[in-house]
């Protein structure tokens, strides 16, 4: 129980560092630290598939973000005229926290999930699909159309990135 608290507090600290640092490369690397903390937390929460995927995605997104920040020189940020934005954002975030704190009472307690659909999957996965890993049985068999949609989105985003960054055929 305590280890979850420690890791999530470390993630919060990393997120604050990533938000407040001036240097963009440093804040991108702090975001990587938050992602590695999330990987550890997935391992502790008995989700090894998610931990593997999160590690790979974390490394890839770190590389992509470093491509955006390397060689960039920015003047220091001016701070005038932002008190209105600041107050608006603080009010918005505090309202979100108050509402979510009120909603906490309706959730099931930590460590005892409802598992209305999950228990059905656990019972029938091996007999119906023959897969020993229940998560892969769900994503590839019970909810295969979701995975098809995911592959479509990934393909579309690759096409989008290629269309944005390519240089040939562009008029000066």
């Amino acid at each position: 129980m305590l280890e979850h608290h420690v890791i999530i507090l470390l993630m919060i600290a990393g997120a604050i560092v990533a938000m407040e640092l001036e240097d963009m490369l440093s804040s991108v690397i702090a975001l990587g630290a938050v992602g590695i903390g999330l990987t550890l937390e997935f391992l502790l929460l008995r989700a090894p598939d998610l931990a593997i995927t999160q590690l790979v995605v974390e490394i890839l997104s770190l590389i992509i973000l470093i491509r955006a920040t390397v060689g960039v020189k920015l003047p220091p940020e001016k701070v005038k005229g932002r008190i209105g934005y600041f107050l608006f954002a603080v009010v918005f975030v505090v309202a979100f926290l108050v509402f979510s704190y009120r909603a906490l009472g309706a959730l099931p307690a930590f460590g005892s999930p409802i598992m209305k659909m999950g228990s059905l999957y656990v019972k029938e996965a091996l007999a119906k699909t023959g897969a020993a890993n229940i998560v892969s049985a769900v994503i590839l068999d019970f909810r295969g159309y979701d995975t098809l949609g995911e592959a479509t989105i990934l393909f579309t985003s690759v096409i989008g990135v290629l269309a944005i960054v390519r240089k040939v055929g562009r008029k000066p």
Partner: peptide, 21 residues
Amino acid sequence: VDPLPQALILTSIVIGLGVMA
């Protein structure tokens, strides 16, 4: 543990990478 949220979040992580790219 409940396998259903794990399967859904596995999809969500990969989509997050595409959006970030």
